[in-house]
């Protein structure tokens, strides 16, 4: 294992710490938040940060810290499930295209190209406006959005590895296509896929923030960072901390996953 190298890799350590911190907050939020996330206190509207409300309150007097912390659940849920959807279908399509080659490859990859031609967020907006906003549809839309990226990475890995001797040897042994794909090739292309997944994670969270900011993602009153950002916008002069804090948290999450991915790539994909 390359744990030692990973531990010495600065981007990985910083990224892992940031993500670890957010994960801890998420776990905490399952059991405890200082205030209920939707609990309003009209006497304390747009309060600035102070001991009783660490990060202040919003225009309804809801505790921003509690809402942010509660929002980590949404963020992780969306990240994990949309990446899972993208991974599953992306690997499936990429594996078949790369392993079979020929016409199968052409057709599948041109479909993926067609998908890549749309800006991802536009596609997600389209899907959500057709199927309606909400958490589930947002996840599906973001998952579909990330399929082509995984499919391309898997395909290139399969094209590369199917020419390797040990794969040919497995064919010569009489192993079937499924066995070769799952047991012999997939484990060998895991590292670029892990890197892509961790980068995709931040992409999904950012996209969800974008969708929710536009009012198409998670619906009120459930806390979502993107929607909090859009709610904070009118008060940017009166309560600048609201925008700053919400934006910073999104930044920290995205930065964390990007650093994590970069670190893993440095260690595992180092060809030199």
């Amino acid at each position: 294992m390359k744990w030692k190298q990973l531990v010495r890799n600065k981007p990985f350590v910083i990224g892992a710490s940031l993500i670890g911190l957010l994960l801890m907050l998420m776990v905490m939020s399952l059991f405890y938040t200082p205030y209920g996330p939707n609990e309003m206190n009209t006497a304390m509207r747009l309060a600035h940060p102070q001991p009783s409300h660490w990060w202040g309150t919003d225009n309804f007097g809801r505790d921003i810290f509690s809402r942010i912390v509660e929002g980590t659940q949404t963020a992780f849920l969306i990240g994990v499930s949309s990446v899972a959807i993208g991974l599953f279908f992306g690997l499936f399509i990429g594996a078949i295209a790369g392993y079979r080659g020929g016409w199968t490859d052409e057709v599948l990859m041109r479909l993926m190209d067609a998908k890549l031609a749309f800006p991802g967020i536009l596609l997600a907006i389209m899907l959500v406006s057709v199927f309606g906003p909400g958490l589930g549809n947002t996840i599906v839309a973001l998952g579909l959005m990330s399929i082509p990226a995984f499919a391309r990475i898997a395909r290139s890995g399969f094209i590369q590895y199917k020419e390797f001797n040990f794969v040919k040897a497995a064919v010569a042994r009489g192993a079937g296509a499924t066995r070769i794909i799952v047991h012999h090739i997939l484990p060998n292309i895991a590292s670029p896929i892990i890197v892509a997944a961790s980068l995709r994670f931040s992409g999904s969270i950012l996209a969800e923030a974008g969708l929710s900011y536009l009012g198409l993602g998670v619906q009120p009153p459930d806390p979502s960072w993107g929607r909090m950002l859009s709610e904070a916008q009118p008060f940017i002069v009166n309560a600048p901390w609201y925008v700053l804090i919400t934006g910073s948290v999104i930044t920290v999450m995205v930065l964390g996953f990007n650093l994590l991915g970069d670190g893993i790539r440095d260690v595992y994909d180092n060809k030199s």
Binding site: N165, A169, A172
Partner: peptide, 24 residues
């Protein structure tokens, strides 16, 4: 053929270093 391959006829390759799956 894939029933024959590996069962009735097997093959040893030139370079064992590349003919084994490195992750298994």
């Amino acid at each position: 053929w894939s029933g024959v391959r590996g069962k009735d006829i097997t093959m040893i390759f030139q370079d064992p270093m590349t003919a084994l799956n490195p992750l298994m």
